[in-house]
Amino acid sequence: MSPRKIRLSTTPTQEALDDLQLGDIVYLDGLMYTAREGVYKRALEEKANIPMELPRDSAANFHCSPAARINPDGSFEMGAVTATASFRFAKWLPEWMEKSGAKLIIGKGGMTSKDYKSFFVPNGAIYLSTVGYGTGALLGRGVEKVEAVHWNEELGLAQAMWVIRCNNMGPFIVASDKHGDCLFERENAKIAENLHRVYEGTRPATLKRYGETDDRSDEVI
């Protein structure tokens, strides 16, 4: 069975978000902005003014820094676009969602169902995962235009806030739903059932590591 494919606005209606199911494939239209460590630190810890009108202009927060350059004439060259692992940003996201009204959090690897239930569901937000990883060239094709790069001088190219106009940009996979269920945890649970069989005939290391666990159903993020 091939997955369902959906086109979605980066300023989506709540109805469209509620309709998304784990494993759906999504293509995006509209403005999205990138935000990783530097952006959260600057906006939330240093209380700098966010240089966009959010969520009016965009409700799509992309955990990404592109392979891109700023030309001497100020224009932009964007090649490939791939997400970075999102779990590192979980500590900033509740405050960010409150401030920015973000509805689509896009990244790599997702977050925990605990995160989804505690601050995604109350804010009506959904997590979209990039595919691969990473389909950098395909996503790069979905970039119609780079509208702006904010905080480049303060944060550098890789940490700056890139504002991207997307046209049928994808694929992305729906990795959380309106109930806060987590696609990756669902898959991990299925895989864990089989692990004892694969581990047959192996033996634990003679020298243990401090704090080591053998619980293979552990979530590692």
Binding site: P66, A67, G136, A137, L138, R141, P171
Partner: peptide
Amino acid sequence: DLSSFVLQAMLENYEAAKEDRRAMCGD
């Protein structure tokens, strides 16, 4: 299902990178 979809997307991605002469991955 999902793994197959991902591998097909990656195969398309390599073609897109070569056609456009852009990096295959953003990282």
